[in-house]
Simulated assay, not measured.
Amino acid sequence: MNSAPLTRQTIHDELERVRSDFHTLVTAASPADLRRPSSGTRWTNGQLLFHMFFGYLVVRRLLPLVRLMGRLPEPVSRIFARVLEAGTRPFHIINYQSDRGAARVIHGPQLLRWFDRTLDTLQAQLAAEPAAALARGMHMPVSWDPYFRDWMSLAEIYHYGTQHYDHHRQQLTIGQAS
């Protein structure tokens, strides 16, 4: 979506753009909007909003893994990615069902608080990352997500959350008539 070089500042700026957009979406969505099906997914808008947040939780969990794998010999992450690829079907089922359930419990102001805390944590970690660490990376299970590539740097993992967000943002039907 964005052709700007992937720098610490561009990642910070995109996180702030997403924060503002997410707040607007969550606060503007009516109960009917949240129950309405999204476009191109099996989730409702409310479930998809949670899933958009969940993408950033995935980033938080990936960061320590990528930091570790980036320091190990390259074949280690290639083998690890292949092992994860073997679990693609269960991953997709868990990804779908967990977001459906979580959206029933975490929504509205609570979802916004969690979202803000998550982005604040990501921005603080990003600011503290040594430049050399941002360039290291690992192989990824490409069948898990269309934005996972065979090998991704730590900077690209930080950016992934926003790619995921922007992709699903287009699928929301908030504000549209039923």
Rank of each mutant, 00 (worst) to 15 (best):
L119R: 10
V105P: 06
V58S: 01
L62K: 05
A32K: 00
T27C: 07
R100T: 05
Q9E: 06
V59Y: 09
G137D: 00
G108S: 11
Y56R: 10
T7F: 09
P73E: 00
L15T: 05
V83G: 03
D150P: 10
S38P: 06
I94K: 15
G175R: 05
R35C: 11
A135D: 07
G87L: 12
P130A: 02
D99R: 10
L15N: 08
S153F: 09
D33W: 09
P146M: 01
S77A: 01
R117L: 03
P73I: 07
R60C: 12
R117H: 01
F80M: 06
E129I: 07
L62S: 04
H23F: 11
N95T: 15
R169T: 08
T10Q: 04
M69N: 13
R71I: 09
T118R: 14
G137E: 00
E129R: 12
Q110W: 14
F50C: 03
G101A: 06
A128Q: 00
V142Q: 05
A131Y: 01
Y160G: 08
G46S: 09
L65H: 07
V83Q: 02
V76N: 14
I157Y: 11
T24R: 15
A155V: 09
V105A: 01
G101E: 10
D166P: 04
V18K: 06
F22M: 08
A135G: 05
R78C: 01
R61H: 07
G55P: 13
L72Y: 02
N45H: 02
R8F: 08
S3P: 00
P75R: 05
S38Y: 09
D150M: 02
Q171D: 07
V105N: 05
E85M: 12
F80A: 13
A28R: 10
G40P: 11
R82G: 06
G70R: 10
A124G: 00
I174F: 10
T41W: 13
A155P: 03
L122S: 04
F53K: 12
A102D: 06
R61F: 01
R71W: 06
R61P: 02
I174D: 10
Q176K: 15
L15I: 13
N2K: 09
Y56D: 12
V142I: 05
L172W: 12
Q47L: 06
S77P: 03
D33E: 05
I79V: 15
L65W: 15
T88G: 06
I11M: 05
D21Q: 11
M152G: 07
A133L: 12
